Amino acid sequence: MLSFIFNSCQDKNKKTMKEEFEWKESVSCPLGYPVDVFMGGLELTDGSFTSLFSGLHTGLGGWGSEGRSMSSGVKPLPKRLNVIWISFVEKTFYHVDAELDYEKIAGLFRKGYYIPSMNKEIPEPFKKVYWTINVGFAPGGVAVVWVRGTARQIEVGRYQGVKTEIPKEQVEKLKDEPEYSMLRPEYQESVIRNPGIIPQEVQEANKDKPIPFGLWDTYRKKYNWKFNFDFPNSNEITNRVTCFYFNGEKEILFGDKPIKLYQIPEELRWNKSEKKAIPRKISFSWITKENLLKSGAITFNEVQIFKAFEELTQGNTEETIKLTVRIIHTGDDASVWLEGNGKSIGLYKSEVKIF
């Protein structure tokens, strides 16, 4: 029996080592909290290594946005994250050495996903593949890994870095290397004062405020909720619903029309009820009874929507919540409501645009 188990594990490991996909690495950070990788990166299943050292990252695209890449190509997937990075605002180096959930990552790469077609001549959904391993670094030593594809990003793990000091003997050896600048206090200060790295308005907003340690873990909290659209002058949502979440995830969900025409996986439907992070913004489209295509986009007020979710659930994340978008009868404006537990809260501070 022991021999059988050992041989089975060997076979599985051999299969894992041979499994290859086309992908690239990327680094992300929140706006206002730039980072740079000092050394290290992703260890792959065949023992090779993909470095995350690719220059300073500003987070101008926001938490979860894709950064630069240095090694796109066909290769094994990563099994471990081992990296030292600097958080410039904290003026602190962190080290994380953690095993990644290989099966979760590989499962996503193997399966792929679908996105709705915007081409009337080719209405069938498009099969897409993931192509990026995105690694995010946030204050407090937070490290998050996402798998990314076209308009889709899924979190696969959160890891904790520990504060670390670079040994003096290593510092001496780096004096002629680009990494040495990260160790210089004057360079660290110049980074956080540079408006091209941290926009002036962000510097002013964060001035004299403590670093919000723990915020990015708050973003990861998931609730059991689903979309609910109310269109008084329409029969159906069409094409798609695109959702960007505060935790860095994003996805395109299928609307009513393609659901009726094709066999769409349950996890890709807009009206699914499941545990997911709080949305940061959404976009959607629908067809009016006059057969006109209309689109909408909603950006949520962070403080208001987080408070509303907590108020409705009262700590019970199993409570089913509906995020309702109601288009007014003229079709040129909308109201947004969070509904559940016998209550309804208007998200009046949301920015609503109808096109």
Rank of each mutant, 00 (worst) to 15 (best):
P265M: 05
R220T: 07
W23R: 02
W146F: 14
N13H: 07
L347H: 02
K281H: 14
W85H: 03
E249M: 10
I321L: 15
N235E: 12
Y94F: 13
W286T: 09
I192N: 06
P232C: 00
P279Y: 01
A205K: 12
A106F: 00
R184S: 08
S190P: 08
L347N: 07
E177P: 00
G161W: 08
D46N: 13
W337S: 06
V27A: 09
V74F: 13
I282D: 01
G59Q: 08
T288K: 09
K12V: 06
G32Y: 01
I105R: 03
F284M: 04
I287G: 04
F6I: 06
I86Y: 03
F4T: 12
V241M: 12
S71C: 09
G67I: 06
V135A: 08
A151E: 07
V147T: 08
E266K: 13
F93Q: 03
T58L: 09
D46P: 03
E172S: 14
E99F: 04
P116E: 06
I84L: 05
V303S: 09
G342K: 03
T320S: 08
G112D: 06
R240K: 13
W216S: 03
K289M: 14
Q200M: 11
V303R: 11
K349H: 06
I105W: 04
K120L: 12
F246L: 01
L347Y: 05
R269D: 04
E165K: 11
K322Y: 08
P265N: 10
F355P: 15
G61P: 09
E249A: 00
P258F: 01
Y94K: 04
N271L: 04
E351C: 05
K289W: 05
K15I: 05
W23M: 06
E179V: 10
H329F: 10
S295Q: 08
E339K: 10
T218P: 00
Y223D: 02
K226T: 13
E99T: 07
G59K: 02
I84Y: 01
S87N: 15
E186I: 04
N247A: 07
I282N: 01
E318D: 15
A143C: 12
S51Q: 09
R240L: 10
Q160M: 07
K343H: 14
E204L: 12
K207F: 11
I298K: 00
F109H: 03
T317S: 13
K111A: 11
E103D: 15
F126M: 11
M39P: 00
V27F: 02
S344I: 14
K294S: 05
F309K: 12
K322N: 12
G214F: 13
T238W: 02
E302Q: 14
N134G: 01
N206T: 14
G59A: 07
